[in-house]
Amino acid sequence: MGRYLIRRVLQFIPVFFGATFLIFALVFVMPGDPIAALSGDKPLPPDVVQALQERYHLDEPLYKQYGIYITNVMQGDFGTDFRGRPVVDLMKDRLPVTIRLALLAFFFEVVIGLTAGVVAGVRKGQFFDSLVLISTLIVIAIPIFVLGFMAQIVFGVKLGWFPISGYRQGWFSLMLPAFVLASLSLAYIARLSRTSLVENLRADYVRTAKAKGLNNRRVIGIHTLRNSLIPVVTYLAIDLGALMGGAIITETIFNLPGLGRAVFEATQAQEGAVVVGIATFLVIVYMIANLLVDVLYGVLDPRIRYE
């Protein structure tokens, strides 16, 4: 296990450089001039443009810019935006909202998605099963921004149960956006856990468990569920990473001051340092989530043990 972990962490290195370079290059080739965007429509004096270009190394070639940037990142310096504010400060500011949103969404996914999936799997072919299958299909088919607006209109405007946008009421403000953010993965998890359970209920070892004289609760809860959850847990761990980064649309719709909206705003304002900084951070989150999945695999399934 130790050797395996070290090997996996070493694999992080090329992935990290590859992913960050790609992001950096994409921002580099974004159309438009960030300095012009900074001043709006008014032209800046040439010496100011020159100074800004030098300060942000905008006159250097791509590989040199990347080299300077990545060296700084490794020292914990994510650079500053064009207003001189450190990107790290911005991230510190925005991260708590995103983490809360992601955790709440994750909670919805696990509790609702898993419960619905397991109950549907146990009652395969019955009414509840069909209900889960159809409703999840509908959720999967609807784009997230449509769902977001629908939720705002129904639960925010018509029913008035939840705040429509903003972050003034803390956790409570996050309920609706977290639910919208969770909806897609929730639907996948319900379907995945249902299928996995149905499949495992047909397994030989389940028949053995019945033959041992165990009751239904034990046959399903102890013997079938653990096997069925292996693919679900894997999906959940990767999804935690996706929730952190996937909140761009949701945070924008619900006007939440999180990382996702920061990326959205920075992209519009051509704030390369902010976009690349946050994206780099998300790359790291993804990599850790992936590592977690591999470790979890070994814990859940003893047949997979890493040498």
């Binding site: 397994a203 030989d204 070892y205 028949r207 053995t208 468990a209 033959a211 041992k212 004289g213 013997h223 653990r226 096997n227 859940l300 399934d301 003893p302 047949r303």
Partner: peptide
């Protein structure tokens, strides 16, 4: 307890986890 059963393929008949 009083009637017990032994199955064919113990690899799949025993719980892998």
């Amino acid at each position: 307890t009083r009637i017990a059963m032994v199955f064919q393929d113990a690899l799949t008949a025993l719980n892998p986890v």
